[in-house]
């Protein structure tokens, strides 16, 4: 696993699928979902563990829907399981 230092949450309901963040990400961590949000847009999501928390994606995001986190020590990304949507309070808050 790559050296992990950062992470993002993306408010998928605010995302309009412009893909600017995906293009801007130097680590290729973001991808566009195959699913649609309630407005009918494919939304971006953090798909790879390579994020460094550089905030480039958040800077270009026209919809200000990206929140960026950075770890100071050894951080491990957790995966939200489809059944436990409350496993990450932070993620919920951002959504």
């Amino acid at each position: 696993m790559a050296k992990i230092r950062g992470s993002v949450t993306i408010n998928k309901q605010y995302c309009k699928g412009c893909e600017l963040c995906v293009y801007e990400c130097p680590q290729d961590s973001l991808k566009m979902s195959t699913k649609l949000n309630t407005k009918g847009y494919h939304f971006a999501f953090l798909a790879e563990d390579t994020c460094t928390g550089c905030i480039n994606c958040a800077l270009v995001c026209p919809d200000a829907c990206i929140t960026v986190y950075r770890g100071t020590k050894k951080n491990q990304l957790s995966t939200v399981k489809k059944t436990t949507n409350s496993s990450s309070k932070m993620a919920l808050k951002a959504l």
């Binding site: 699913k35 200000a64 929140t67 950075r70 990304l77 939200v80």
Partner: peptide, 30 residues
């Protein structure tokens, strides 16, 4: 605010670890 349960189906969405610090977020005035 929104019902977000439907998102987490098959795509593996990574979320931050609790020990991480928030370094950037939407400005409050927006």
């Amino acid at each position: 605010m929104y019902n977000m349960v439907d998102v987490y189906i098959s795509e593996r969405i990574l979320t931050p670890d609790k020990s991480m610090d928030k370094v950037w977020e939407r400005p409050d005035l927006l």
